[in-house]
């Protein structure tokens, strides 16, 4: 302000017909998703997360092709080897099985369970949250009470009982996790819908005679996509965690199958003797968690309009 610059009239010139130009946008027009992508691209952490996910994903698929062993054949003569010999890149476990194979096979199973659980989360959570938020009133109150009950039962009791009923496998564990996991999802969807449904465009659509279904599916749900996507990226790691926890207390995947949680639980039993059996699966699990969290953070920053500055 204090700069001593002299302004002369020559520096200024009229821009002419204002009205015409006023409607014109100088900046290139960007859609919501494109905008989010631009933002996401600039987030270093998120990109690292994506890269890590890609690496783990590829290894879970192709890792097993990289040596001549398989995840289930035992060879007690070479049990608990920590060195990389004979293509056992990560050594062997207490049955002499190849850890490299088991870790990637386990990562695949863990991811399958997590994706399936989160898919169920989304289906149940969006439906219930959508109905609750859109219709409001009595229905909303009923659903909210119901959710409160679900939320207040220690989720383990539901899960353990379910696992006593069902054959414990990928599907049963995914269902068990989703059974209580949909609650946060439904809350997010409900809160968003509550906010959106009172907005003018919804009123307009309703006035024009659009059905509930149409309003929900065409107007509301697409606008809730952002928060849902964010919630999904955070639900996946918590589902992986929960699977690991279930395996740890002996209720998850059953050996000789493998999941990251089961491998960690097996490794934990011999931590003091052969730490490598715990180290590798724990490392992969941790990196996986980290990657999902980084991506989730990145997505939240990119999609959450509240954060736009």
């Amino acid at each position: 302000m204090s700069t001593e610059k002299t302004y002369t009239p020559e520096l200024f010139e009229p821009i002419g017909q204002l009205e015409k130009r006023a409607e014109q946008l100088n900046r290139k027009q960007v859609g919501v998703w494109k905008d989010a992508w631009l933002r996401f691209r600039q987030n270093k952490g998120a990109l690292i997360g994506v890269a890590l996910l890609l690496v783990i994903g590829l290894l879970a698929i192709f890792g097993p092709l990289m040596n001549d062993h398989n995840w289930e054949t035992q060879n007690l003569a070479i049990k608990n080897q920590s060195a990389n010999i004979d293509g056992h890149y990560m050594g062997t476990d207490h049955f002499g099985r190849d850890l490299w194979q088991r870790v990637w096979y386990g990562a695949k199973i863990s991811l399958e369970i997590a994706f399936l659980a989160v898919f169920l989360d989304v289906v149940i959570g969006v439906t219930i949250g959508g109905i609750s938020g859109y219709f409001g009133g009595r229905i909303d109150m009923f659903i909210q009470r119901f959710i409160e009950v679900i939320y207040s039962i220690p989720n383990l009791i539901i899960i353990i009982m379910l696992l006593m009923w069902m054959e414990p496998g990928i599907l049963a564990i995914a269902i068990a996790i989703a059974l209580t996991g949909w609650v946060p999802m439904s809350r997010i969807v409900r809160a968003q819908i509550l906010k959106l449904r009172s907005q003018e465009y919804v009123l307009a659509a309703r006035t024009l005679g659009a059905s509930h279904k149409r309003i929900l599916l065409k107007h509301l749900i697409p606008n809730v996509m952002g928060p849902i996507i964010i919630a999904v990226t955070f639900s996946i790691p918590s589902a992986i965690f929960f699977e690991a926890f279930l395996s740890f207390i002996g209720l998850g995947i059953r050996p000789p199958e493998a999941s990251l949680g089961l491998l960690i639980s097996e490794g934990n039993q011999i931590l003091q003797l052969f730490p490598h059996v715990l180290l590798w699966p724990a490392l992969v699990l941790s990196v996986l968690m980290l990657a999902f969290n980084l991506v989730g953070d990145g997505l939240r920053d990119a999609l959450d309009p509240r954060m736009k500055k």
């Binding site: 289930e72 054949t73 035992q74 207490h94 049955f95 002996g250 059953r254 050996p255 000789p256 039993q269």
Partner: peptide, 27 residues
């Protein structure tokens, strides 16, 4: 239990390897 599960794992692998018989473990 851990030991019972390990027993199952061993039996499954043994019968498969030695006889080609498939075993399903129920813990």
């Amino acid at each position: 239990t851990t030991s019972a599960k390990r027993h199952g794992e061993y039996v499954k692998d043994s019968f498969k390897k030695n006889l080609g018989v498939d075993v399903k473990i129920s813990s």
